[in-house]
Design a protein around this nucleic acid. Sequence first.
DNA 1: CTGTCATTAGTCAGACAG
DNA 2: ATTACTGTCTGACTAATG
Length: 386
Amino acid sequence: MAVERRIAHLDMDAFFASVELLTYPELRGQAVVVGGRSAQAPVTNAQGDREFARLRDYAGRGVITTSTYEARALGVFSGMGLMKSAALAPEAILLPANFEAYRHFSRLFKAAVASVAPHVEDRGIDEIYVDLTQLEGDTLTLAQRLKQAVWEATGLTCSVGITPNKLLSKICSELDKPNGITILKPNELTTRIWPLAAKKINGIGPKANEKLASLNIHTIGELANTPAELLMAHFGKSTGAWMAQVAQGIDDRAVVTWSEPKSISRETTFERDLHAKHDRARLSEIFTNLCMRLAEDLQRKGYASRTIGIKLKYADFQVVTRDLTLPDDITDGAQIRLAATECLKRVPLEQKIRLLGVRAGSLRPVQAAEYLARELQPTLPLEFGS
DNA sequence: CTGTCATTAGTCAGACAG
DNA sequence: ATTACTGTCTGACTAATG
């Protein structure tokens, strides 16, 4: 008989905004949003006070990355266009994103958690799963210990959910946010989970939720009471069966502490939409840049790629992708550009473009020494002495 | 030899997530 | 007068292979 697992999901509270508040403590308690491509960084005036940009002063195509809970109270959430959010909360403080700082604090909080519980799965910059099954001590004490370690290492709070699996823990970490602990007791599935909206399930997004709503399924409980056959008929065999399982709170996925990346990509949205003919030179420059940066990423992370792909987003937001699998691995920026150019030839270019991306897939780890062997042409020491 | 079936690789779109 | 960026997964379709 298998022991019941104890899986924790730990989610940092309003992570990016909270990191900014460490830098700018005078903003505590205010509506603050992070985001915007050209958001103005705070400036210190002659009196030594910091002056912050307001949302109403912003003009551009950015979106909100994170907002403080005070800003959320005004209806301003992540993913929202900045122009729209400025209409809702013109006085909110706007800060540019500082990803270097977020990555720094991400490393700090993950190291702190790992010092308490070594079995950690990375889920992006601000959340993790932790397998506590093998650890001594009762569940609540362990949760408090995790939160304490994060607080001492970073000065930041987080919310924790602990249940027998990742699915339920992810749901539970949200139930008492911010700075909360939720431990799902046995038999609480029907009382605490089933009343929740179906879209609270990680994997049921806006589309699936809409489709469920059209079947008059709104809560997880209603999903649980829907025959698996019906779900399979509407969502396909695999997705339908999965939905039926998760609605019963069943999820056997292991906590995975490491996995090989499948693809590495770079993309950018232009300041203004560009046309393939009219803005050829500018587009070519951006394209080369993306390829070179992708090559740097590949080499820094130690991978060679056999599949190169491109992504275009047109002015009307339609997205197209093309990719090309090569006979051999490549790592070099010029080779990537060559392959990506082949992809570009297979794409319509009448309409204006707002985004261009380049992606490397079919990755193979390579030894650092292999890169030296791959340098077909000697690189000119452009930076040397300049 | 032809047709069918299973399997795999490749390509593309789209959903989803943090 | 909007809607980022990076990455994973799956479904649909085609082609190749046996």
